[in-house]
Structures are given as structure tokens and as C-alpha cells.
């Protein structure tokens, strides 16, 4: 039972990471298309400024919880995905550092370096997260000893790349909508325009992904077994349609919530589909790492459950407070013009 609870929590933590840092990564990778002037780029930085760091902690928590609750999965996942994970790490380093560095010198070459670091870092991170998770959904060529039979190119298969494109688009729209909440005037219009422009592309890619998934993976099998799991793909479809609806009504918060529902539905669909496996093996089903064969001891799982049930609601409460506080109090364009 504890293993099942932890599987769900594991899925929830990764999903919350995608929901929160997703809009930062999306805004970062879209920046060249959203801005022409220096102050506009500054405003895009400010639209993430109060939130990105805490959002990234969800990744650290998701990784830490994998380590704590499913040590064997953590060990095999991180060592077999060695190169893509370190690339993700460097991408996040470049993305993160640009926030602090950019404003520290006025020279245009200096700012261009950190703008590129923001955009490149965000793009590579979004792409790699998609590639990694699509490959996990499909199964990695892992043997009984948890050793990967393949390399980086093995992961860059068509399904993996399709997952990468899906994540990039999903985060991009999420980020563009976030900008419509944080900005006013021309910058808000830019976010709106790009979100509307990308929406049919995302729709097409999502449909293709759902179809290819039926052939490339066994994600649908669990829905056959437990029909209530169909709520996830349903949530994704409804969310995506509502994104367009609320964008047309210029109801920014509802469009953002819809985009979040889409991301949550998509992640939930994949994660529910691999249950009880955390790391399916494509070589040998018996070599898959599951919530049961890779879990920590009952004592550790119980203690961690207590910690998570107390602290995660507290964290959520103050993060919601910060988002509410700073979306109303910060005028990103005014800040950008005073050079902060």
C-alpha cells in the first residue's frame, strides 16, 4: 500500500514540477519571439523572477523523493540517462544564472550572452525533459543489472523526439499565457499572439503523440484495466480545448489554469500508464523497476510520508501566496524600465 501511495506522490511531484517550472522554461525559450527591445526582455525575466527558483526546487524534490522512496530506480534512472541528465543540468545552470547576471552590466554584448543563455538553457531543458520521459514511457533498453544497452542516440529515437517537441510546445504555450498574466500592453499582446499561433501546432502534435503512443508504448493498457484512469487523457483534451476558448475570451487566469490542466493530464496519462513500473525495460519486462521491487523500507516510506504530508501543503500554501501577491503587485514593465 505504501508503495502505491509513493508511486502516486512520485507522479504528483514530477507533474507539479512541469506545471510550475514549465511556464519559466516556456517563457525563456520563447523570449526571442516575444521581444525586440531590451526592456521587453528585462520584463520577461521579471515575469519569472520571483518564482523560478522555488519552481526549480520541485525538480530537486522530485529527484530527492525518487532517491528516498525508490533508491534503485533513482540509481538506474540517473546513471543510465547519464549524458542527457548532465546536459539538462548544464541547461538549468545557464538558465538559472542568467537571472542574476543579466542586469549587472549595461553592455549589449553582456546582455546578449545572458539572453542566449536563458533561451538556450530553457529550450534544451524542455526538450530533454520531453525526450527523457517519452523514453521512459516507451521503456529503456535496461538489462537485469540495470545497465543501459545504448547511448544518447538510442534515446533520440522518433518517439523520444516527438516527446521532446511536445514538451517544448506545451511549455511554450504555458509560458506565453503566463506572460499575459504578468504583463500589460504590447508585451501581453505578444504573449497572446504567440499562444494563439502555437495552439493549433500543439493540438496537432498532441494528437499525433496520442496516436503514436498506442503503437510505441503500452500506456493505454492500464486504462483498459482501470477505466477511471481515462480521466487523465480526458483532462488533457478538455484542458487544451479550454486554452483556446479562454484565450479567445482574453481570460488569462482561466487560460493558464486550462494549460495547467493540459500538462497535468498529459503527465498523469503517461505516469498512470507505466504503473506499477517507474522505469520500464524494453529488453525484458522482468528487468523493469517498479514501485514494489525498488522501494525503500517500510519505516523510511512511512517517515517520508509524514514529512511530505506535513511540509508539501505548507510549501504549496506559501507558493500560492507568493504567486498571488506578486502577480498583482509587480508591474513587470515598470520594473523593466527602471532597470531592475
Amino acid at each position: 500500500m505504501l508503495e502505491i501511495i509513493w508511486f502516486v506522490l512520485w507522479g504528483v511531484l514530477w507533474t507539479v514540477y512541469f506545471l510550475t517550472d514549465g511556464y519559466d522554461l516556456g517563457l525563456g525559450l520563447l523570449m526571442p519571439f516575444l521581444s525586440k527591445e531590451d526592456w521587453e526582455r528585462r520584463a520577461i525575466f521579471n515575469a519569472q523572477g520571483p518564482f523560478w527558483d522555488a519552481n526549480e526546487v520541485w525538480l530537486i524534490t522530485a529527484g530527492g523523493v525518487t532517491f528516498a522512496a525508490f533508491p534503485k530506480t533513482y540509481a538506474v534512472m540517473f546513471s543510465s540517462l547519464y549524458t542527457p541528465l548532465l546536459m539538462l543540468l548544464f541547461a538549468l545552470i545557464f538558465r538559472g544564472i542568467s537571472f542574476e547576471m543579466r542586469s549587472k552590466e549595461p553592455f549589449s554584448w553582456w546582455r546578449k550572452i545572458w539572453d542566449a543563455s536563458m533561451t538556450g538553457g530553457s529550450f534544451v531543458a524542455a526538450l530533454l525533459l520531453g525526450v527523457a520521459f517519452a523514453n521512459i514511457f516507451k521503456g529503456l533498453p535496461l538489462d537485469q543489472d540495470g545497465i543501459l544497452h545504448g547511448n544518447l542516440l538510442t534515446l533520440l529515437n522518433p518517439y523520444g523526439l516527438l516527446g521532446g517537441v511536445l514538451f517544448v510546445l506545451m511549455f511554450a504555450i504555458h509560458g506565453a499565457i503566463w506572460l499575459t498574466i504578468m504583463a500589460k500592453g504590447s508585451l501581453r499582446e505578444n504573449g497572446y499572439r504567440i499562444a494563439v499561433l502555437l495552439w493549433p501546432v500543439l493540438l496537432a502534435v498532441a494528437v499525433v503523440f496520442l496516436i503514436v503512443t498506442a503503437f510505441a508504448t503500452d500506456l493505454y493498457a492500464n486504462i483498459g484495466r482501470w477505466p477511471f484512469l481515462a480521466v487523465f487523457p480526458l483532462l488533457a483534451v478538455v484542458g487544451l480545448l479550454c486554452v483556446r476558448l479562454f484565450l479567445a475570451r482574453r481570460d488569462w487566469w482561466k487560460a493558464f489554469a486550462s494549460s495547467a490542466a493540459f500538462i497535468g493530464g498529459a503527465a498523469g496519462f503517461g505516469i498512470a500508464g507505466i504503473y506499477p513500473r517507474l522505469l520500464p525495460s524494453s529488453l525484458d519486462p522482468a528487468a523493469s523497476l517498479t514501485a514494489f521491487n525498488s522501494a525503500s523500507s517500510t519505516l523510511t516510506l512511512s517517515i517520508m510520508l509524514g514529512v511530505v504530508l506535513v511540509f508539501i501543503p505548507i510549501v504549496l500554501a506559501y507558493q500560492v501566496w507568493v504567486h498571488k501577491k506578486f502577480t498583482s503587485e509587480i508591474d513587470v514593465e515598470a520594473l523593466a524600465k527602471t532597470g531592475k
Partner: peptide
């Protein structure tokens, strides 16, 4: 080998402390 103990300490650090600092 150590995830049962060491991993949980790191996970507690993230959920109790990192969020607080970073937020």
C-alpha cells in the same frame, strides 16, 4: 546501498529547507 537512509535525508532537506530559502 544507502538510499533508504541517505536519500530520505536529502529529500527532507529539499521539502523542508530549499523551498523556504528559494521562495
Amino acid at each position: 546501498f544507502v538510499g533508504d537512509i541517505f536519500g530520505s535525508l536529502l529529500a527532507i532537506e529539499a521539502s523542508v529547507a530549499f523551498f523556504l530559502e528559494s521562495t
